[in-house]
């Protein structure tokens, strides 16, 4: 069986016919070939699959594509490119907020939502705010710095 779902991805109409049990992350990666969104654990723990659903960070491995009727999805591909990095991407580059890079797309999507959500962004709030994203390289220190630098730029 399959079902039609009407949604936008990165500002463009991405309405498609999908199987009911297709996960949002698989729809993005397999159907739309947006492979910047990663699958780390597939058990809603690591956060590598984080995308924005109507502006809020969600784990796309724990959302069905059919649940996205009339929803706007943003992925890492939608927030900036090589020539026009989003301030959060720029800050991760400047502050060495990544090493292997696997967790980075999810980390950046979560961080953008964190800056939107929290007025004050001290180290504790950033670490707690990103506790749904796991990084096995950096030790998080430079990720925290990246978010602090990006938050200043995003708010100016």
């Amino acid at each position: 069986m399959a079902i039609k779902v009407n949604l936008k991805v990165n500002g463009e109409d991405a309405s498609s016919v999908v199987k009911e049990n297709t996960l949002l992350v698989d729809f993005l990666r397999e159907n739309l070939r947006l492979t910047g969104t990663h699958v780390g654990c597939d058990t809603s723990q690591c956060g590598a699959c984080t995308v924005h659903m109507d502006g809020r960070a969600v784990k796309s491995c724990t959302v069905l594509a059919v649940q996205c009727e009339q929803v706007e999805i943003s992925t890492i591909e939608g927030i900036g490119g090589a020539d026009n990095l989003h301030p959060m991407q720029e800050a991760f580059r400047e502050c060495h907020g990544l090493q292997c890079g696997f967790c980075t797309p999810g980390m950046i999507m979560s961080s953008i939502d964190l800056v939107r959500r929290e007025r004050e962004l001290d180290e504790d709030i950033i670490r707690k705010g990103l506790d749904g994203n796991i990084c096995r390289c950096t030790g998080y220190h430079n990720i925290v710095r990246s978010v602090q630098v990006a938050a200043k730029k995003m708010r100016n």
């Binding site: 956060g47 969600v58 979560s110 939502d113 959500r117 705010g129 749904g132």
Partner: peptide, 8 residues
């Protein structure tokens, strides 16, 4: 949970 879980 975490921020993403609380959003859903």
């Amino acid at each position: 949970g975490d921020a993403q879980v609380r959003n859903r």
